[in-house]
């Protein structure tokens, strides 16, 4: 397979739009076509990607634990901000990769959770609401805008992205971790909902959540996970930027090999 970076211009010469006004009209046409297209693609791809890599942690409030949810989520969540963040910044100088992709994910998640988990499968909405991650996208984008460097954005923004998932969501999650008692057993509100609202094919043991270890020093679980997630996410973000760089290559080949 031979890659050709610069295909010969098919038509050269004096052809062109008649005026700047016409040019602007053409640009507007492109914007009107491309911007909604990007939004819809982000909604579709991100939603698909996130469902199949994070899925249950975001579907059910009784999955959002202190150890696995804040670790798995940023790793899957920073993929599209990395890939499309590279494209949007490198080709258009738009610091939108983080916010726009996550905004699209959030919109798609609310629509789907409402239609599928609430209307179709009948769960109450307060059991299946999606977490929020928009703040993380904003941090990445603002960092990129202010530093104009993928390196610093990865180092600080990528770290903050992993670090802040838990505190960002705590304002919504906290009430679901208030304790109560059921038949002599202590549970959180989220656990109780998981027990009461029957899920035939997701039995309790399928939950991948924190189980204590003899070396779990009490409340250190959340901050440790946050710092580890932050560290992993620096590398993760850089890696996906690189994938974005590969994806943005305008490669041409002669034929299908």
């Amino acid at each position: 397979m031979k890659a050709i970076d610069n295909p010969a211009s098919v038509s050269a010469g004096q052809h062109g739009l008649s005026s700047a006004i016409e040019q602007r009209k053409a640009y507007v046409q492109v914007d009107l076509l491309v911007i909604p297209l990007i939004v819809l693609l982000f909604m579709g791809i991100f939603s698909f990607h996130f469902a199949l890599l994070v899925g249950d942690w975001d579907y059910w409030v009784d999955w959002r634990d202190r150890r696995w949810w804040p670790l798995v989520t940023p790793l899957a969540l920073s993929v599209l901000p990395g890939v499309f963040g590279f494209l949007l910044w490198d080709k258009l100088r738009l610091p939108l990769g983080g916010t726009l992709t996550i905004l699209c994910l959030t919109l798609a998640a609310w629509i789907s959770r409402y239609l599928n988990f609430h209307i179709f499968a009948d769960f109450p909405m307060n059991f299946v609401w999606p977490s929020t991650y928009i703040g993380l996208g904003l941090i990445l984008d603002c960092m990129l805008l202010l530093t104009r460097s993928f390196f610093w954005t990865g180092l600080f923004g990528g770290f903050a992205f992993g670090l802040l998932i838990y505190p960002l969501n705590w304002s919504m999650l906290a009430p679901f971790q208030v304790p109560l008692e059921l038949n002599g057993t202590m549970l959180t509100v989220a656990d109780l909902m998981g027990y009461e609202y029957i899920r035939t094919a997701i039995p309790e043991y399928v939950r991948i959540i924190e189980e204590s270890t003899l070396r779990t020093f009490g409340s250190a679980v959340t901050p440790l996970t946050a710092v580890f997630a932050g560290f992993l996410n620096i590398l993760n973000y850089w890696f996906w930027l690189w994938i974005g760089y590969l994806g943005a290559k305008a490669l041409w080949i002669r034929k299908i090999v």
């Binding site: 999650l173 208030v178 304790p179 959180t188 989220a190 656990d191």
Partner: peptide
């Protein structure tokens, strides 16, 4: 959240 729900426990 800390102010409003000061007492929480991890998922059981």
């Amino acid at each position: 959240a800390q102010e409003k729900w000061p007492i929480t426990t991890p998922l059981q």
